[in-house]
Simulated assay, not measured.
Amino acid sequence: MARAPTSRIPLHTALLPPAGVAAWLAFGQAGLEPLALLLAAILLGNVLAAVHHAEVVARRVGEPYGTIILALAVTVMEVGMIVALMLTGDPNPSLMRDSVHAAVMLVVHGLAGLCIVVAAIRHRQAEFRVEGANAFLAVLIPLATLVLVVPNFVVSVPGPFYSPLQLGFVSLACLALYGAFIFIQTGWHRDFFLPAGGDSAPIAPPSGRIALASLGLMTLALLSVVTLAKALSPAVLEGVRAAGAPVALVGVIVAAIVLMPESGAALRAAAANRMQSAINLALGSAVACIGLTVPTVAAVSWWLDQPLELGIAPGGTVLMLLGFLVAIITYGTGRTNLLSGIVHLVLLAAYVFYIFAP
């Protein structure tokens, strides 16, 4: 039996997008530090509002277009934040590398680990489809390797950089892999990503009026996120420097903000014993992060004539590949338990620790 469709728009998701644009117009370019916390709160609210409205539109249009809309909404937010920081102060060629690396580690270990622990505490063991989890890993592992590891070993350009030709090829490869994954997920093998018993309570689509209003509010919310990110960029960079933290922490902040809405949805799904939905949300966000963000930011960097430092350090490479090996073991049985969740959380802790103590 279908659950009731969305019949109204929550008030806060309707008020936050115009409030974000108004705040940016009024204060965003003034550089007033006392307002930084207020602008940050409005930005985070608009991240949540944008994803909410994207989900409403996605339910209206159905698959595969709904998945594409959700991915594009998250990508616009991440790209907007990265480009805003790229345009602020001194060039930061490693920003995209740090944010993509952080997104992979936060998803594979942080979000997935928390989902496994929550499901284990509530239900002891959680079941999911091995085929779906393996499909995510089959795309995520080569994407992460091509973007974050291979640049350290090519010889056309010294250092952890790609030549323009190589970066163009990798960008096309990311798009091709993401497109092929979307085709499989929404077409030929859609059942790989559904619960074993099917969707017992599908969500009925919202009305056309609600969907159209959400489309407009989603666009406004994304505009608010991008503009407020640009306004807050100097404060973020200055705060990281003032705290004596590594610059790589900026990438972690960007990734955490972008992943925040999907994290809440994934944890709720895990608590309700819907581990397949939690995996779809968690690993799907990492696949979209690399598959769509890297080509977009690469195009912007070419237009701005700014290099992109992509290769991660040897220690980070070992830790990331170890994480993928553990993920293969975790998702290879179709069941998760508390131990596997704790292992993933320990690996996340190691990643964060080595940012501050490389």
Rank of each mutant, 00 (worst) to 15 (best):
R3Y: 04
A19L: 14
G20N: 03
A22P: 04
W24V: 02
F27W: 09
Q29S: 10
E33M: 10
L38K: 00
I42Y: 02
L44Q: 06
N46K: 03
H53S: 10
V56L: 08
G66S: 14
M86F: 14
P93R: 05
G110L: 09
G110T: 11
I116E: 07
V118G: 02
A119L: 00
E131H: 10
F136G: 03
P142F: 09
L143W: 15
A144R: 09
A144N: 09
V149T: 12
F153R: 12
V155S: 12
Y162C: 01
Q166G: 13
F169K: 05
A173I: 13
L175R: 03
G179I: 13
G179D: 13
F181V: 09
I182Y: 09
F183P: 01
R190A: 15
F193I: 07
L194I: 02
P195R: 06
A204Q: 13
G208L: 12
L217E: 02
I253H: 05
L259H: 14
M260W: 11
M260P: 00
P261S: 11
S263T: 15
A271Y: 15
S285F: 07
C289M: 13
C289N: 12
G291K: 00
A298T: 07
A298D: 02
L304A: 11
P307G: 07
E309S: 13
E309C: 00
I329C: 00
T330W: 04
T333S: 14
V343M: 02
V346D: 07
Y351Q: 01
Y354E: 09
I355L: 15
I355Y: 03
